[in-house]
Design a protein around this nucleic acid. Structure first.
Length: 274
DNA sequence: CTAGCTTCCTGATAGC
DNA sequence: TGCTATCAGGAAGCTA
């Protein structure tokens, strides 16, 4: 459930704690989370690596090493990446622990084990993570009404569903698609080929605005993150639409309704989003 | 090419 | 109280 704003938050919190540290040990409790390469090679390759920086692309998070190799993770639904002291109580479902040169540990916790790790060597082409298929970042200046129209105008699927398509604009999941459509006053089931020029314009402006707002609203301290605030992806206090079924719309007071769109729960205001 | 369905997982919650 | 069924949703893999 971490979407772009949460992944960006994690990157901002972890990067200063990891930069310059060396990985001195790697323990993998569940090989399932290692997607590439084979688990033993993965562990051996990580040991001894010195971290230079972190980056984010869509919902993917990458730790870069001296020499150019890198470790990429996708947290999917319930993945959590923490930097803790060695004596920090180990949570259930801790699948990977990497000891660092300063005595701290990187820990990967994931209840549902959907998250995945990939280690890529410096010159290795990335044809394993799926990142090569990603569309533009929401803050890219290429994100215009024309771009969205070109990609989606002829599609018959509901716009809510298409906002989740990572090959068009990356980083949007079920929470922020509700927030974006509410803010843009668009009914989630509107078929792409029924959207008006004005609605495409509104979407193009709203997508980056809402995701930026999400990043800012997510801001928290390292302590808050470790204490669990970084887990509260749902029902975060600042959200306006997602999970608000039965509650009054902050704009008009009508009650939010919940429907299923493309198999995903979807919350909208019946009078603002037509 | 698109659409539609299934799979992966556990824990919280709803219903009986 | 205790059981079972359903839901949560990101993305890949599959069929048509």
């Amino acid at each position: 459930m971490p979407e772009l704003p949460e992944v960006e938050t994690i990157k901002r919190i972890l990067e200063p704690q990891l930069k310059g540290r060396q990985i001195v040990s790697v323990t993998i409790n569940n090989p399932q989370i290692v997607a590439y390469p084979e688990t033993d090679i993965f562990s051996d390759a990580l040991e001894g690596q010195t971290i230079t920086s972190m980056s984010r692309r869509g919902k993917y998070l990458t730790i870069h090493f001296e020499g150019g190799s890198s470790l990429t993770v996708h947290l999917r639904m319930t993945g959590q990446l923490l930097v803790t002291s060695q004596n920090h109580p180990q949570e259930k479902h801790t699948h990977l622990v990497a000891g660092l040169s300063d005595g701290m540990e990187i820990r990967y916790i994931d209840v549902r084990r959907f998250g995945r790790f990939w280690y890529l060597q410096a010159e290795e082409a990335d044809n394993v993570t799926g990142r090569s298929k990603l569309g533009i970042e929401p803050f890219d200046e290429l994100l215009t009404a024309d771009y969205l129209k070109k990609k989606l105008q002829k599609r018959k699927k509901p716009i809510k569903e298409m906002l989740h398509d990572q090959s068009i604009v990356t980083g949007i999941g079920n929470i922020y698609s509700d927030e974006i459509l509410f803010s843009a006053c668009i009914y989630p089931e509107t078929k792409c080929n029924d959207l008006t020029a004005e609605q495409w314009e509104r979407l193009a402006k709203t997508i980056p605005r809402i995701l930026l707002w999400g990043i800012e609203a997510n801001e928290m301290t390292t302590e808050e993150y470790l204490a669990g605030k970084g887990k509260e992806y749902r029902n975060t206090p600042f959200l306006k639409a997602y999970g608000h079924e039965g509650k009054p719309c902050p704009n008009c007071g009508s009650l939010f309704e919940k429907i299923t769109v493309g198999g995903r729960s979807s919350c909208y205001c019946p009078s603002c989003q037509k």
